[in-house]
């Protein structure tokens, strides 16, 4: 966690971002199709650390437009629907690069989060959470966590810090 703490205090954010950006796709490839289809663990209604942290990070940055629990708002689409058929690569690219469109309600613009460490460091976690929501594997509100000792995702995350 020291690693993360230092990110907040200065301009080493750019360096961290580099690490994160190169890390995420590699993970996706290693774990191939399985992880992308089911990037979360839900046991007895409890979720792994990634899904849990994805909930937190989603509600730090994304929910101000996409609404609580990925349910959408008057301003931006419901990601519980979008993630039903969006690939991890498309998801990550959209988050990193943003997108814009125009429709009946005027311009709709999503910003690029590519240089936001609070998003890009946890892009896999946010994906896991939203995918779990899209699959209806996790309900609304704050999910309970699997005991860290029995949580392989947390063990792996901690080992990498």
């Amino acid at each position: 966690m020291n690693y993360l703490m230092s990110a907040a205090t200065g301009f080493c954010g750019a360096m961290l971002l580099f690490t994160a950006a190169s890390l995420a796709p590699a993970q996706a490839q290693d774990e191939a199709v399985d992880w992308e289809d089911k990037p979360y663990i839900v046991e007895d209604g409890k979720v792994d650390y990634g899904t849990y942290n994805g909930f937190r990070r989603y509600h730090n940055t994304c929910h101000t437009c996409h609404g609580p629990d990925g349910m959408g708002s008057t301003f931006a689409p419901a990601l519980v629907n979008s993630l039903k058929d969006m690939s991890y690569a498309d998801f990550a690219a959209t988050v990193a690069n943003g997108r814009s469109s125009s429709g009946a309600s005027g311009n709709s613009v999503m910003p690029a989060f590519g240089d936001n460490v609070d998003v890009m460091l946890y892009i896999d976690h946010i994906y896991a959470y939203l995918k779990a929501r899209a699959d209806d594997a996790v309900g609304r509100g704050r999910p309970d966590r699997i005991d860290p000792e029995n949580d392989p995702v947390f063990q792996e995350w901690q080992a990498n810090q």
């Binding site: 907040a8 954010g13 730090n60 101000t64 936001n116």
Partner: peptide, 16 residues
């Protein structure tokens, strides 16, 4: 904990 990047959200909390 959150980091500051100019022009990016700087929130640092989750709420329900």
């Amino acid at each position: 904990q959150v980091s500051y990047t100019a022009g990016q959200p700087y929130v640092g909390a989750t709420l329900s």
